[in-house]
Design a protein around this nucleic acid. Sequence first.
DNA 1: AATGAATGAGAATTCATTCAT
DNA 2: GATGAATGAATTCTCATTCAT
Lengths: 191, 191, 191, 191
Amino acid sequence: MSPRTEKQFEEIREERRSQIMEVALELFAQQGFSNVTIAKIAKKAEISKGLMYNYFESKEQLITEIMIMGLNEFNEIFDPNKDGELTHDELHYFIDESFRILQSRVKFWRLYFLIMFQPEVYTLIEKKIYEVLGMYLKLTMALFERKGLKDPESEVRFFGAMMDGIALNYVLDPEHFPFEIIKKRMHDLYQ
Amino acid sequence: MSPRTEKQFEEIREERRSQIMEVALELFAQQGFSNVTIAKIAKKAEISKGLMYNYFESKEQLITEIMIMGLNEFNEIFDPNKDGELTHDELHYFIDESFRILQSRVKFWRLYFLIMFQPEVYTLIEKKIYEVLGMYLKLTMALFERKGLKDPESEVRFFGAMMDGIALNYVLDPEHFPFEIIKKRMHDLYQ
Amino acid sequence: MSPRTEKQFEEIREERRSQIMEVALELFAQQGFSNVTIAKIAKKAEISKGLMYNYFESKEQLITEIMIMGLNEFNEIFDPNKDGELTHDELHYFIDESFRILQSRVKFWRLYFLIMFQPEVYTLIEKKIYEVLGMYLKLTMALFERKGLKDPESEVRFFGAMMDGIALNYVLDPEHFPFEIIKKRMHDLYQ
Amino acid sequence: MSPRTEKQFEEIREERRSQIMEVALELFAQQGFSNVTIAKIAKKAEISKGLMYNYFESKEQLITEIMIMGLNEFNEIFDPNKDGELTHDELHYFIDESFRILQSRVKFWRLYFLIMFQPEVYTLIEKKIYEVLGMYLKLTMALFERKGLKDPESEVRFFGAMMDGIALNYVLDPEHFPFEIIKKRMHDLYQ
DNA sequence: AATGAATGAGAATTCATTCAT
DNA sequence: GATGAATGAATTCTCATTCAT
């Protein structure tokens, strides 16, 4: 029989990678990073332990990839036309979409926040995070300046702090968090 | 020489416990809970591994005590007369004191936050945190109700989220955080 | 196009086998037998892992073949007419040719020696080596007896030991080894 | 009860280290470096696997220590008064003692040679070996010069090559090697 | 109270080999 | 012939905790 084509191999690989990441994500969310062993992931994904290493160099690399995937989701909604300028409407779009993203996969984002603060993991994506946050701050400050706010730098810090705090509180206790109301509060603050 | 009194022994014991906790806090924050071995802590605290277990039943109990110690500092400034009612002045006192506490030992609180979000650790103190936060929410909501705010529950969640976000952003980058301005912002919001 | 003849296939096959053996030799020598994986060999030989097993039954068989190939080169120059008797001239021919063989591919022989002394490898070809060496000893001893040497058995051992030591020292540091002088020394000892 | 004194701990450690090295040596000799697992060593030494790592950082470090121990044995008999000059008598003392050392623990030296040529191991002690050999060559050449030999450099290379070859042949097949006779041969060559 | 040797269960990782395609 | 995904047993190494002294 003829061997599989390169494309077929590629498809198998992509398929398996997603499958592993999905399973790993769920386990990490339920049990915490260091309580999840490769063996557990492999078992749940119904593959052998060895195969894990065909797709991810290590447990750390696996979590790193998951983390970066998450960062990218926010990148897509900030300054969505990527013209390097944040408009008033884009700010409100960002607020809306941020809330939507969080809400769509609370469990994921809960894990995401929890993991992000683990030194081992944080170190791995620190650089990427600084890059992204720096860009957010810069563009948002430019907007606040154009809006004529008195102290745009402090204002942007305050905005960032609030968004962080809200995200954190929401994902840690989504049942009781008055999501819609607080979203409106945020919109109102920057009308 | 007269033998040490029981009280002196007790003091030495307490001294050692604090010393161990301090060392452990720093290591946990730098390297992550599960990457810090008992051996590392013992070495840095200049005692033997075995002796560690004379002071703390287990690694888990050690981290739990550290985390609870931190929680207690905030407990002391919330409703300081412990009469089960939060007044307007007590709210502003809490805001002030919270900021003061953070500022007084930024390094400690940065470590504290970094540790708290490690899933293994968070799990251990989750219950205690819910208890404490629940109490904060309840008393603050009662105040907001008395003040006649429209949606006191949401308002209190928003307040909590902001305080968290601010604390987080401050300790992670104290140099650039517009501390005083944002403190004033918070006071103003609840005049 | 006419299909390839069986002979052509055979040639291609042999070609590939040599190529794999060459690559494997270098890797084994550089990194040690057990640190070289089939995957590494396959990658360097630019074929797939699976195909390796089409040419060699196992990793062990691969190394065994390489080692035997080397042994055979010396077999060809010892008692070249294969009449089971070593003459005076044939001894000197062997000395000359041994030196020539070593010199012609110093790099190969350095690798060869390095590999041969790896216990895992040595074990595999131990038997074969005994066979070959036994034959060398026997024929050389017969010559020394005919020459009337006093203690031919010891003499032949001494001869073998010197040849080994020289080969080893030469291939490990060919730049500084006084090749010609020592070759002459050997000839002179057995005039 | 009072804890063990530092000296007691030191004794336990030394005792155990020797015990492990001895057992490891024997196993390595019988089965070859990479066929001996930590588990095997631990079992034979009647300790737990974990304890191995209390005494040796890794399997590699264990073998390295054994190797260096061996090198040191030869260092002690070469230029024994360590005055930086090799006399005629010291050369013959070295020949005698080298043979005695090899003979005293053939099994050890067999292993020693076999292991020394493993790239992983060789790398670890390469530097040390160069140092030692360089010193041997230098002092021996000085002696040959004083003796008035024509080409002392080649002569010393020849001497080294013979010693190597003899050692190798002897340890690989001690039963059949005409030890005494060849020792005498060596002495005679340098009268 | 104090020490650090000792345990043992379990973790991540490796790799020769097989096999469906 | 040819590919590389898949397996699983084996291996090294880690570490919280116990314990004799």
